[in-house]
Design a protein around this nucleic acid. Structure first.
Lengths: 141, 141
DNA sequence: TTTTAATGTAACCGTTGACATTACAACAAA
DNA sequence: TTTGTTGTAATGTCAACGGTTACATTAAAA
């Protein structure tokens, strides 16, 4: 079980838009050739990022542009934009037996810790902005 | 996408073995009735926990018993025992374009942060032991 | 020794989600 | 009006999950 690649695709897409957008019109085809996926996959990604208010996409004439400052976009924003996880990260078995002392209390005992683990992951993603990645990238280019 | 319920099933299973094991013979059928899944699912769970050296299972006569002290079993141990995640938590798109400055460096820029996020999750799971859960549970029973 | 009750596993099924791809309508600018 | 692009529906393939049946194996009790 892994978290869908929609996430890394979305980050890649945003980096491309931010870094290459000044020089090129960032169409789904161009981005797709950098990410190396089908252009429709990129259009879906762009659609999600647009819905999240992160970018603007021009229908017809084409091209995606950032709406927010890269310093104000965290990895967590992107993560949620593309719906990597619906609600809880951990899948909990349904209907534990309420007649059993363990089944009756399993949620009371576990839920906090599962939430903590999920929060730890998400906080780490919140601590990194797109600007951080762009800075790193510009050093390497 | 969610992390497989094998994890919460395994925790539930272990709690049942530790808490109810003194009073009852913990067969896959009994555990299954507490968790509310098919007994074969529990046998698969027991098999994984046994392979990880966490419990002992008696073939034939039946019954599962703990091998390690509950204070020495973390949620992370259980998490890995049932193979919730094979290696990396985040799925990375394959073959980003090396001809593109973004595609060429996307791994160099992202990998550290993905690893950090995964480590944050895992460290949180490492910080909780089965003994912690048992203590909580005994208060509620 | 036979019976009984479990475990260990293989096999198969249905469901779900991911990702790829085709197709085409809608759109905006040249 | 032509052209290039976006938006999105539809379809296909594949893998993983969880459910279930079936049965050989095992160990202890009768």
């Amino acid at each position: 079980m892994k978290i869908t690649s929609r996430f890394t695709v979305a980050v890649h897409t945003l980096l491309a838009i931010c870094v290459l957008g000044k020089k090129y019109k960032m169409t789904s085809d161009l981005i797709a050739s950098s990410v190396n996926v089908n252009p429709v996959v990129i259009r879906r990604t762009l659609s999600s990022l647009k819905a999240a208010g992160i970018i603007d996409v021009k229908a017809g004439s084409g091209g995606a542009t950032p709406v927010k400052d890269a310093g104000d976009i965290t990895l967590y924003d992107i993560y949620t934009a593309v719906d990597c996880v619906e609600g809880d990260l951990f899948n909990f078995h349904e209907n534990p037996n309420p007649e059993c002392p363990v089944g009756k209390n399993i949620h009371a005992v576990m839920d906090v810790h599962l939430a903590d683990a999920q929060a730890a992951l998400e906080n780490e993603l919140k601590s990194v902005t797109l600007a951080d990645l762009i800075k790193q990238l510009n050093i390497l280019i």
